[in-house]
Nucleic acid binder design. Structure first.
Lengths: 230, 230
DNA sequence: CGAAATATGACAGTTTTATGACAGGCTGGA
DNA sequence: TCCAGCCTGTCATAAAACTGTCATATTTCG
């Protein structure tokens, strides 16, 4: 489950990118300025950032520099979107810390290729990763979940939800945070729907003896935790 | 538990904001003019102030300046609400000391994003904090309370109440101050209700060997304190 | 002792979450 | 293209959990 944050002040471009990325199986979040972007990065850390070079207010370059300066965010890969007129080479020389550049207008294929390349370089790619918690294993490469060796059949959404929980254990997430992380922002879905998916996931896990890991934190949200609370 | 003070002379706007903020998990207090605001700031220090720029009497700008001049309040982040006609740029130049500006009409999302951004900058964000007093730990990230490692189950209100006490120890609070801080102002609740919640919290803490920390100060209120008084 | 203030236990109304059912959408095949 | 079957988002409803208030004890203090 790779999450991509799209930062661009033009709604049309954001939407186009979101559409294309979603189609490729990425989860997208949008921000229309640097502030919103920072916000999104903190509440819902993406795996990669597509950043428009020109934006009103804090520009993409500034934001990139700032992110690269902060140790907490400096490993977040950034792909900068630049307009043709802006002289690629010159920009590259600016030492913004971006990991790659794409010149508008660009083809979707080209962008996707670069995204994959950057993700591969940053090691964030899904290949080969295996998450383990107790007897639960999530193999991202084969997209397979097993408990104690026994495979479990999960629907796509269940898989993403479990993946999210396993990679963010112990912390409470509100329903809307869960929606953002698992469904991607810019979807409008009833918050209660999260409950339903939680139930489905719980039922599946329970039927394999892996119960009580998804805990309800009343009036806050849910938490995935090994420590059973009494 | 982040508290936000909303200062605006129009009741409708105050209510709308209070509703939206409460929905996001903030505790809100309202004031309809600068005087009330100052009052509220002293009896119930907020973590952030939403301040209308135009108000009868002392305007938002004046109040902001005053707060920023006072060393005790100068670190309180302020977000100024301005009407469109008021020329953003000009206002920014006024050196009011506000930390950010939002132009009316604004979208709730935008406001929330800016609030989070400002809170983040001021380090007041809820994430990751862990409060400790003796063997009592409150982990805001996982929303978990433990005594000596043993988890305690608290209801939402109990959690907020304990959180408030632990972050404001060694000081007496009247029942109405407690109501303001834990329930938010603009709720109409019997003062005696505080007693009941205190009792519930005491009982829970006592059952885990953490008794006598919440002390009754007769005819004044309650105090959370390590130093047991005789 | 008597008034005032606080602690308690019980309770009913609310709020929040869990569940079961369902219909539209989508997918892969026929 | 059409169909069967799986996914999914939403509801209505049931089930829990939480809360605010009261009436009634207890305690405190002059």
């Amino acid at each position: 489950m790779v999450r991509i944050l799209v930062v661009d002040d033009e709604a049309a471009i954001r939407q186009m990118l979101a559409f294309a990325l979603t189609g490729e199986g990425y989860i997208t979040t949008e921000a229309c300025n640097a502030d919103q972007a920072q916000d999104a990065i903190h509440t819902n850390r993406p795996d990669l950032i597509l950043l428009d070079w020109m934006m009103p207010g804090l520009t993409g370059v500034d934001l990139a520099r700032r992110l690269k300066r902060n140790p907490e965010t400096k490993d977040l890969p950034i792909i900068m979107l630049t307009a043709r007129g802006e002289e690629h080479e010159k920009i590259k020389g600016l030492d913004t810390g971006a990991d790659d550049y794409v010149t508008k207008p660009f083809s979707i294929q080209e962008l996707m290729a670069r995204i994959r390349a950057v993700l591969r370089r940053s090691g964030k790619e899904k290949e080969g990763e295996i998450l383990v918690i107790d007897d639960l294993k999530i193999d991202l490469g084969t997209h397979r979940v097993t408990i104690n060796g026994q495979p479990i059949e999960l629907s796509p959404t269940e898989f993403r939800l479990l993946h999210f929980f396993v990679s963010h254990p112990e912390r409470v997430y509100s329903r809307s945070q869960i929606l953002d992380n698992v469904w991607g922002s810019n979807v409008y879905i009833e918050e209660r729907t999260v409950d339903v998916h939680i139930r489905r996931l719980r039922k599946l896990l329970a039927s394999h003896g892996f119960a009580d890991y998804i805990q309800t934190v009343r009036s806050v949200g849910y938490r995935f935790s090994k420590t059973i609370n009494e």
